[in-house]
């Protein structure tokens, strides 16, 4: 099977201000993202994680190396719509990506653009809204919804284009904790039940626990890459990269330093509590 996204020695520098040297935002990034996976990309501000995301559906084009989406080079201008159909993008600010003033019209926007027949659009709109659990809001005005609901509408708008992959570029950053939960639950459901590849860009460490794979970016390079249990337990490395390890990891490592025999990779709170109670009971 072809990788849904593949970057080969990807480099990018933003066009510099006049008279200044261009600052590289990405240097030599080699990544492959397999179909059906759930990848979380972490990194502190300015680590290049958002720039990387924007390369995944040709919003930005590499200044060095190349990016392949389902085998198509993103630099091929004539394949632009093919690429964007395969990889949908959800952005940070929910208000600035909703186009229409009725929910169903907004979800229909993408399919309308690619010329899907009317009856098919209807079907897709209803299905997508059901997939994100917003079918009761079909005729609502988007500005009356909560942040989490708006992001779910934005996700529905992407699903309606039947993509293979959804990239969420810090889509949870502006949401309150319950909104963040809504979005995370929605995307993990889509990943599990519909096999859609998810790339979640975030700086919230605890969101990484949902993933199959965690990539940590630093200074435009991939600094760490592996399953969450492996990456998130490397507290020292995470700190060095400007990230705070999840509280569960901190607790467990403190306990083990104090001589407790607990596993270090019980990342999720539930799991962590069980590990501790097991130790205490034993």
């Amino acid at each position: 099977m072809t990788d849904i996204i593949r970057t080969e020695n990807l480099s990018y520098a933003y066009p510099p201000d006049e008279g200044k040297e261009p600052v590289p935002a990405l240097t030599g990034v080699d990544l492959t993202i397999e179909p059906g996976s759930f990848v979380v990309v972490l990194g502190h501000n300015g680590s290049g994680k958002s720039t990387l995301a924007k390369h995944m559906n040709a919003v930005l084009l590499p200044t060095g190396g190349r990016v392949l989406v389902d085998g198509i080079d993103t630099a091929e201008e004539e394949s632009l719509f093919e690429i964007r159909r395969r990889v949908g993008m959800v952005f940070q600010n929910p208000d600035n990506q909703i186009v229409a003033n009725v929910v169903e019209e907004d979800v229909a926007f993408g399919p309308e653009n690619i010329g899907v027949p009317t009856e098919e659009i209807r079907r897709r709109v209803d299905e997508s809204l059901k997939a994100v659990g917003m079918e009761d809001f079909l005729l609502h005005a988007p500005h009356m919804l909560s942040g989490g609901q708006k992001q779910r509408i934005a996700i529905a708008g992407v699903i309606a284009m039947a993509p293979q992959c959804i990239v969420l570029d810090e889509s949870t950053a502006m949401l309150d904790p319950s909104g963040r939960q809504e979005v995370l639950r929605t995307v993990s459901w889509l990943n599990r039940e519909q096999g859609i590849t998810i790339v979640l860009i975030t700086h919230h460490m605890n969101e990484a626990a949902y993933a199959h794979r965690v990539i940590v970016m630093d200074h435009g390079r991939v600094a760490m890459d592996g399953p969450p249990k492996e990456v998130l337990t490397r507290s020292k490395d995470l700190r060095r990269l400007g990230l705070t390890p999840p509280p569960t990891v901190e607790l467990l490592s403190a306990l083990s330093e104090a001589g407790w025999n607990v596993p270090l990779d019980a990342i999720e709170p539930e799991e962590c509590a069980q590990a501790i109670s097991k130790y205490l009971g034993a």
């Binding site: 559906n57 919003v59 719509f81 952005f91 926007f109 993408g110």
Partner: peptide, 12 residues
């Protein structure tokens, strides 16, 4: 931002 979001949804 809206313009980029619209382009990402294949608006042309």
């Amino acid at each position: 931002e809206l313009a980029v979001a619209m382009e990402c949804r294949c608006y042309h």
